[in-house]
Every structure is written in C-alpha cells, then in structure tokens.
C-alpha cells in the first residue's frame, strides 16, 4: 500500500464541442476501492472508459502502477486492467458458449493451460462446471454477471473497472455478486473502481467515494463520513438524503 495503483490527474474528455469530464483527479491505493456516484450524464462512466482505454480521446495524466498511460494501449495494459459492464447480456456474445467467452482472453494473451484455468475460474465465481458449454441465454442474470466477472479475471488483472455491475440484477442476486466481489478482492488483492448510481452499494464496497456532477468531481468523501452525514457539497447531501429517506424514513 505504498504508491497508488491508479492515479488520475486533471482528466478531461470532450465529445465534439461538449466537455463531458472537466478536469477530474483521484487516486486509488493498491488493493483499494474507489466508488463513483452521480446522475446519468455526470461523466462517471466516461471516466471509466477513458481509464480502460475504450476512449482514446482524452487529455490529462493517468497512471497505472506509476506508469503513465498513452491514448493507445498495448496488450500488456489489458492484461493488468479489465472491465465489467452493466448488462451481462449485452456484453456476452449470444452465439458463443461460456467456454468460448472465457477462453478468448487466454488466446489473446497467449496464456496456456486453458482447460484448468476455465474450470478454476468457474469455481472461483461459484458457478457449476456444467455452465461451461451453455450459451448466455441459458443462464440467469446473476449467473451471466458471474461469467462476465470470471472473463475479466481470466488474464489475471490487477485492476478491475466495474461499471454498474449490479444495477441490472435483483436485490437478492446483487447481494451475492457484491459478496463475490469483496471475496475476490481479498484473495487476489485487486484494485477496484466502481461506478454506480446506488449510494448504498458503493459505500458497501468502497471506503472512498467520489461524487460527480456535470463532469466535475464535486466531492471526494470517505464512506464513513458519508454514513455519518459529514458531507461538504450540496449535491452529496442531496444524494445521501434520498438514499437515507428510502432506507429508513424515520431517520431523516
């Protein structure tokens, strides 16, 4: 836990003439988790896509483990940084079996030992080995998201970027996936950046939380301070009030 695993400084992203991310800075220690909350259009997913290399059109400075990132990334980068998307149905190829989806990262990175790695990956995300030769539509939403997490872990990355990993799932399944994510983080010392609109979900997994509004990171707050209501920015206060009001109407 000496240097930070992810460091983002003054990141700006522009779509056409529109500034979507207006100079955002944050850092995440190795093995830590950073959460990002905000409304749709606040730029939180755009930050994640810039970090993951899906959008090369950005300015500023980004570092992974002390190495500055270029707009174009090499294969080594994608071995260290992987992403999990919101909708597991949209991110898994409908015509490919789970076996194919999971072996693809291994083939791309030239990692051998495919057979045992797939079986181990399925066991790690608590899926029965029978799902291996099924297609995505034969799995439930929660199982599909587990496959997406397993696929992201195939290349043994150190950083996992999570874009609303549980918002397409039922609350009972959400709890299982969140527990899985915390267990994996402990066993593999993974670094997470998680985007969500659900404050309770983010605070559950991440000790530090950034609040986005209109392309700016308006506040970085610890989960502890957020729980206690020690918020600085009006937008954070508003988001917290909404979340608490629904959770426990008597506490407002």
């Amino acid at each position: 836990m000496t240097a930070s695993m992810i460091a983002v400084e003054n990141l700006r992203v522009r779509f056409g003439t529109q500034d979507v991310v207006k100079g955002v800075s944050f850092s995440v220690p190795r093995g830590g988790s950073f959460g990002m909350v905000g409304e749709s259009g606040s730029g939180k997913s755009t930050i994640l896509r810039a970090v993951s290399g899906l959008n090369a059109d950005w300015t500023g400075r980004m570092e992974i483990d002390g190495v500055a990132l270029m707009p174009k990334r090499g294969r080594a980068f994608f071995r260290r940084v992987q992403m999990v998307f919101q909708d597991p149905y949209g991110s898994l190829h409908p015509g490919q079996t789970i076996d194919r989806a999971l072996s693809e990262p291994l083939l791309v990175h030239g990692i051998g030992d495919i057979e045992t790695r797939i079986l181990r990956a399925l066991a790690e995300v608590a899926l029965p080995s029978t799902v291996r030769f099924r297609f995505p539509h034969q799995l439930s939403g929660g199982q599909r998201q587990r496959v997406a997490i397993a696929r992201a872990l195939m290349a043994e990355p150190e950083v996992l970027l999570l874009d609303e990993p549980t918002s397409a799932l039922d609350v009972s399944v959400q709890a299982e996936v969140l527990n899985l994510l915390s267990a994996l983080q402990k066993s593999r010392n993974l670094t997470y950046v998680m985007v969500s609109h659900n404050l309770a979900v983010v605070a559950h997994l991440c000790p530090m939380i950034g609040v986005m509004q209109g392309g700016n990171l308006v506040e970085t707050i610890s989960a502890e301070n957020l729980r206690a209501g020690r918020t600085q920015h009006a937008h954070t206060t508003e988001l917290r009030a909404l979340s608490v009001e629904l959770e426990d109407p008597e506490e407002v």
Partner: peptide
Amino acid sequence: GLLECLPSLVKPKPQLSVL
C-alpha cells in the same frame, strides 16, 4: 430475506446476507 440482503448506507455490514 429481501430486506436483509440490501446494502445499507446508515448501517454498514461487513458481509451481506444472502437469500
């Protein structure tokens, strides 16, 4: 079970209970 598996902002739990 549905109520207990929700993560809570006010009352943190180290592990979420699973249905």
